[in-house]
């Protein structure tokens, strides 16, 4: 509850709590369930998700648009804990993956 109040405050001040996480993950049919399940059961706000296989298809790259300021560190630690997650990098909001997709909306 308090989390949402804070997020609204941040929006009012015209500062964004939105971040983009870029993950490298093992590519198998269950990996999306693992990532999405983590966000839903820990009540983290996940606003957008893009996932594509890379290379020979052993790995996938995944971009997550996350709306969490207070819990961001916690979100990243939890994501890093998943055995299927190979690496995590963070980017500011407005990553071209999502701004490019916005053209289709």
């Amino acid at each position: 509850m308090q989390k949402n109040v804070n997020v609204e405050m941040i929006d009012k001040e015209n500062r964004s709590a939105v971040m983009v996480l870029e993950l490298m993950v093992n590519n198998h049919p269950g990996v999306m369930s693992h990532i999405c399940g983590l966000f839903s059961r820990r009540a983290y706000n996940l606003e957008g998700i893009v996932c594509m296989p890379i290379g020979a298809g052993e790995l996938s790259r995944m971009w997550l648009q996350v709306n969490e300021e207070l819990k961001l560190e916690q979100v990243i630690k939890q994501v890093q804990k998943l055995p299927d997650v190979v690496s995590v990098a963070r980017h500011a909001a407005g990553h071209p993956v999502f701004s490019g997709l916005a053209a289709f909306m």
Binding site: H28, P29, G30, S33, H34, G37, R41, L82, P83
Partner: peptide
């Protein structure tokens, strides 16, 4: 079983 056990295991596998 795979889907149901995700939130209650450290890791899980469906052997393919």
């Amino acid at each position: 079983t795979y889907g149901m056990s995700i939130p209650v295991t450290k890791h899980n596998n469906l052997v393919r």
